[in-house]
Simulated assay, not measured.
Amino acid sequence: MVKFGYTILYVEDVEKAITFYENAFGFSRKFVTPENDYGELSTGETTISFASKKLASQNLSDGFIESSLEDKPFAIELGFITDNVGELVQMATSFGAVLVSEPKQKPWGQIVAYIRDLNGFLIEICTAIPE
């Protein structure tokens, strides 16, 4: 059996990233190393984690493409489901997120908006898909 445990985002400042997600989305801090080079948020069954770029470089000797607000986002996103997309977008942008796309209703009834976090990672904020 395989279980999806976590997604790790490589960031410049783990503490700053954790604090942003706590403030912008209401997640709680699960764990941060004493060196502040790795941390996790309690987000449900699957954890969002953060590793410093320095730690990531130690693990990936050939390097990696860094996320940045100056570049286009990667072809991946984090998806957060909420009952009030507009309110959560407003909260996140008040803590420094960058608005990519205002909330829009999709033909299947779901409301979807896109933002980028402080490190340039793409986040979809949406309602649940109607049954």
Rank of each mutant, 00 (worst) to 15 (best):
P103D: 02
L122G: 05
L55I: 01
A75M: 13
D37A: 01
K16R: 15
G44E: 02
N84W: 08
A56L: 04
V32S: 01
M91L: 12
E40T: 14
S68Q: 10
W108D: 05
E22P: 03
F4N: 02
G63I: 11
F50G: 05
A97P: 09
G39V: 05
N36L: 03
L118P: 10
T43L: 12
L41A: 10
V112Y: 00
F95D: 06
A51S: 15
I48S: 04
Y114R: 05
S101E: 15
Q90D: 15
I125G: 10
V11M: 13
T7N: 10
P107C: 10
T46W: 00
P73G: 02
T33G: 00
S52R: 00
F25P: 00
L9I: 08
F27R: 07
V89G: 02
A75F: 13
A113I: 00
L78V: 12
L41I: 10
A113R: 00
G44L: 01
A56F: 01
L9M: 14
T19V: 11
P130K: 06
D62P: 04
D13E: 13
K30D: 15
V2Q: 09
M91F: 01
R29V: 04
D83L: 09
T7L: 14
T82S: 14
L99R: 03
F64V: 12
E15V: 09
A97Q: 10
I48L: 15
S68W: 13
M91C: 06
L118Y: 12
T43G: 09
P34K: 00
P103E: 06
K53H: 03
F74T: 08
P73E: 02
R116H: 07
T19C: 06
E35V: 07
F95W: 07
Y21P: 00
L55N: 01
F80N: 05
K72M: 07
Q105C: 01
Y6S: 10
G44I: 11
M1A: 14
G39A: 15
N84T: 11
V112K: 00
I8A: 13
D37E: 13
T19N: 14
R29I: 03
I65D: 10
K54W: 02
T127M: 08
N36A: 13
T127S: 14
L78G: 11
Y6H: 11
E77D: 09
G79E: 11
N23F: 06
Y21R: 04
I8K: 12
A128Q: 15
E102R: 06
F64I: 14
Q90A: 14
T82N: 07
E102Q: 06
Q105A: 04
E77V: 05
S57V: 03
G26T: 13
N84I: 00
F121Q: 01
Q58A: 14
T82K: 07
M1Y: 04
S28Y: 05
D117C: 11
K30I: 05
S94Y: 11
E45P: 06
L9C: 14
